[in-house]
Design a protein around this nucleic acid. Sequence first.
DNA 1: GTGAAAGCGCTAACAT
DNA 2: ATGTTAGCGCTTTCAC
Lengths: 335, 335
Amino acid sequence: MAEANRRATSREVADAAGVSQATVSNVLNRPDVVAPETRERVTRAMESLNFVVNRSARELRMGSSEACGVIVLDIANPFWAQVTSGIESVTGPLERAVLLASSGESTVKERQLLHQLEAAGLLGLLVAPTGEHLDELWRIQARGTGVVLIDHDDATGRLPAVALDHVAGARLATNHLIAQGHRRIAMVNGSIQNHWCRDRRAGYEQVCRSAGITPLEVAVDGMTVASGFDCVSHLLAIDGLTAVFCVNDMVALGVLKGLSERGVGVPEEISVIGYDDSEFSAMLSPALTTVRQSAFAIGAAAARVLFNIESVESANRSLEAPVLVDRQSVVPARY
Amino acid sequence: MAEANRRATSREVADAAGVSQATVSNVLNRPDVVAPETRERVTRAMESLNFVVNRSARELRMGSSEACGVIVLDIANPFWAQVTSGIESVTGPLERAVLLASSGESTVKERQLLHQLEAAGLLGLLVAPTGEHLDELWRIQARGTGVVLIDHDDATGRLPAVALDHVAGARLATNHLIAQGHRRIAMVNGSIQNHWCRDRRAGYEQVCRSAGITPLEVAVDGMTVASGFDCVSHLLAIDGLTAVFCVNDMVALGVLKGLSERGVGVPEEISVIGYDDSEFSAMLSPALTTVRQSAFAIGAAAARVLFNIESVESANRSLEAPVLVDRQSVVPARY
DNA sequence: GTGAAAGCGCTAACAT
DNA sequence: ATGTTAGCGCTTTCAC
C-alpha cells in the first residue's frame, strides 16, 4: 500500500527528489528559477507522493490568503444566488477560493460570520450588511482585511461600495404605474432595517408626492413568497386600490398567488409590479412587469474591486441603471 | 491611534495581560483550566487589542480545520441554492465555515476546485460530482479528508453518499402521465453525463416500456430555462405528442414559455410535468405539475454525515421519498 | 494554575 | 542553481 494516510509534505517531496525543501518551494512558486531537469524530477516526486501544498502553512508564512469571504443576505433568494454567480465568475478564473456564508438577514448571525471569516485570514470580504452598523466592518478593514460592500453604501466613504440605484428603480416602477393612470398605489415593503427597502420606498414616495398622491405602505416581515401571500388581506382592505408595487419579485409572486386565490383579477382589477426580474418572472401568468437590475454584474463588480482589478468608481459606473421590464401585470387603470 | 494596522497575536495578548502565551491559548481552548481572575484579565486584553485568532496558525498546528468545502453543480440553480441552505443549516449552529464552490457541471473545473479545496486542509468535502470519475475523490479520502457525495452514489461503496431516488421520482411522473391517458410522451433531458438525467431517464423508460409505449427523448445542453425554451421546436416536430416530462422545473419553465409563444395551449394541447417543485412552480400559469424532492434535506443530511452527527444509513432513510405534486399543467389526454 | 519550549509545513533571505 | 536557516502564530506536553 503506497498510499499514505497522511498528506505528503514538501520535506518528503524534497527527500524523494533528492533536493532541498527550498527547491521544492521554488518549483511551486517560481518555477523559472529552477533548472528544467531538477524541476522535472521534483514534479514527478510530487505526483508520485500525491503532494498538495498545505495552505494553512503557506498562509501562515505569507501572512495572508488569496481567498475571499462573502456574506450575502439569503442564499436561497435567487437575487443573491445570482450575485454569488457573479462573484464566482471573477474568482474562478483567478483560482481564488470563495468562502460563502449567508446571514439570513440576522445581525447577530452576521457578527458571528464576520468574526469567523476574519479569523480565516482571508484577503478580503465581500459583504451585504444586514443593517447600518458598519463599525465592525470598519474595524476589520483597519486590521488589514479588505472589505467591499455589496449593494450598500458607506456614508462615511471609508468602505468601497458597489451599489445599485434602488431609488431610481423604484421611481421607474412608480412612474410607470402613475403613467398608466393609477392613483391608489400600495407598496408592499420589507423591513426598513434593510436599506433596499428604504431606498425603494424613498423612490416610491418621491414620485407619489410629486404626483400629489398619498403613499400607501404595507410592511411584511421577510422578502419572500410567503410574506407576499400573507399580506394580501391587508392589501384588499385598502379602499379603491388599483395597483401594487412589490419590493421584489418573490413578494410579487406571493401577492399574485394570494390575489388569484381570492378571485381578484390581475391585471384587470389590480395591477402588480415587481422588482429584480427574477428568472421566473417572465413566465408567470400574467407575466410580471418588473424592474431589472443586474445581480450578476454587481457580484462581479464587487469582486473586481476587492482584487484591485478595477476601481470602485469605474465598477459603479459599469453597473447598468435599472430598467423597466414592461410585461402583462400592469395595465391602465379603469375608472 | 490605538488601532494597529496588523492583527494582534496571542503573544501580544499574553504580554498585555502579563501572562504566558500558553495561558492565552488555554483561555481560548480550555477556559475551565485557568483561574477565573486570570481568565478575566486575558479576556480584557483580547478585547482591547481586538484579538482574533489566526486560523492558519491554529490549523497548521492542529493539522486540520473545522471547515468544510462544498462543490455543487450550479449555484444559480434554485435546487442547489436550496441544498446549500440545508448545509448551512447544520454548519451555522456548529460555527463551522463553509467554502462553497460551483463546478458549473464542468469536469475540469471540478478537478481544479477539488485541488484547491484539498489544499485548504479542510475537515471534509461535500461534493456533487459532475461525472462518474470518482477516483480523485477516492484519493482525497485516502489522504485523510472526509468526503461525502451529494446526490450521487458510489457503486464501490467507498464514499458515503446521500442520494435522492431519481428513478422513483421519474417513475412517479411518467406513471401520472400514463394514468391520464397519454401515450406519446417526450422527455426533455439534460446530458446523460449527469447521473440525475440518467436516473430520471431510466425511470421514465422503465415505465414507458412496461406500458408498451416508446420513449421519446429530446436532449438539451444545460438544465436551464433557456435550453428548455430552445428545444420546443424539436418537441413540436414529434408526431402526435400530447405530454412532456421535463428533467427539472427550470427546463419546464422554458418549455412552457416556448409553447406559449408558439400558441400551443398547456395543458389543453400538451401536458407538461416538471421535477423539483421549485418555489416558482406553483405560481406559474398553468401551475406546474411536478415531482417534489427535498433539496434542503439532502444538504443538511450530507453535512450531518460529514460531521459524524448521523450515519449514512440513517441520513438516507430520513430523506423523504419523492412525491407527485399534482397541479394544473397535466390533464387527461383527449383523442 | 501557569510558564518554557518545541514544532506543525511552508517561504524567503542569505549564503554557497 | 541550489541549500541553509529562521520564523510565521498557534497549541501542547512537561516542568514547576
